[in-house]
Amino acid sequence: MSKKILSLFVVGIFILSLGLVGCGKQEAKPAKVLKVGSEAAFAPFEFQDESTKEYVGFDIDLIKAIGKQMGAEVQIQNMGFDGLIPGLEANSIDLAISGMTITEERAKKVSFSKPYYKSGLTMVVKSDNTSIKSFKDLEGKKIAVQLGTTGADEAKKVKDAQIREFNSAPEAFLELKAGGVDAVVNDKPVNEYYIAKTGGNDAKMVGEPLTAEDYGIAASGKNKELIAQVDKAIEELKKNGEYEKIYVKWFGKKP
């Protein structure tokens, strides 16, 4: 073999090796990202830590654990509760986790995971209120609710009640504290958390839960595959004890 041919052969091998390296770079897949919508004013499920400004809560820890199980990075997007389903429909977010009750009406628009938390609606009134003891007593009263929630739906069924809708649960509680409404109708764990944080000085929870509700993680109605992956991840988290660990962290008891 002549020196010229040998040189061309070496150069050819060198160029081929560069091409293979380039192909390797093109084939490397970027980290999978899940854009998750949540209305971060629904403690203890999702809220913003006052000191760190990080989004925290039961739902936040759970979706991050689910993402880790799926090998995906979770990016939380804080948005209004009533904007979550439109966000899924527009594909601006992949999933929504925000204490969202699974209902037939919502299930017509989105795909839900299997239930991951059981809740129910209760009432909160001011500590010195003695006239409201059951949902029947709400007739003709002023009721604060969060926009787009099942609490709002149920409150609207109360005879002669005046309904005031707010963008977040904290706004509804502030209206109660200010005396602008007689009661707040919201999810039991959220009501319990609010009363615990205020030391029970301003408000109290009364009556039996009106409903039994299941929370689900939502995806676009067309994205059945993603929900199947979420369901699988939740089952794995329950088997390995991570779900129980997160539950105990936020609710102080085992599920």
Rank of each mutant, 00 (worst) to 15 (best):
S168E: 13
S168W: 06
S168L: 04
A169H: 05
A169M: 10
P170K: 09
P170W: 11
E171F: 01
A172G: 10
A172P: 09
A172E: 09
F173V: 12
F173W: 13
L174P: 00
L174W: 03
L176K: 04
K177C: 00
K177I: 08
A178M: 12
A178K: 15
G179F: 02
G180P: 02
G180E: 08
V181R: 02
V181P: 00
V181Q: 04
D182P: 03
D182Y: 00
D182L: 00
A183T: 09
A183M: 02
A183V: 11
V184S: 13
V185P: 03
N186F: 15
N186W: 14
D187V: 15
D187M: 15
K188S: 13
K188V: 12
P189I: 05
P189N: 08
V190G: 07
N191E: 08
N191L: 09
N191P: 01
E192G: 01
E192A: 13
E192I: 07
Y193T: 11
Y193S: 15
Y193V: 09
Y194I: 12
I195S: 10
A196F: 01
K197R: 09
T198L: 14
T198D: 15
G199F: 02
G199T: 01
G199S: 04
G200I: 05
N201V: 13
N201K: 15
N201S: 11
D202K: 09
D202C: 02
D202V: 01
A203L: 14
K204E: 00
K204C: 02
K204Q: 08
M205C: 02
M205W: 03
M205L: 12
V206L: 02
V206A: 10
G207H: 12
G207P: 07
G207N: 10
E208G: 00
E208C: 00
P209F: 00
T211E: 03
T211N: 06
T211A: 06
A212M: 05
A212V: 11
E213S: 07
E213I: 00
E213H: 00
D214C: 02
D214M: 03
D214Y: 08
Y215I: 00
G216I: 06
A219K: 06
S220P: 03
S220W: 05
S220K: 13
S220Y: 05
G221A: 09
G221H: 08
G221N: 12
K222E: 15
K222A: 14
K222V: 11
N223H: 08
N223D: 15
K224E: 11
K224F: 08
K224A: 09
L226H: 01
L226K: 04
I227W: 04
I227C: 07
I227L: 06
I227M: 04
I227V: 14
I227A: 09
A228D: 15
A228F: 04
A228N: 11
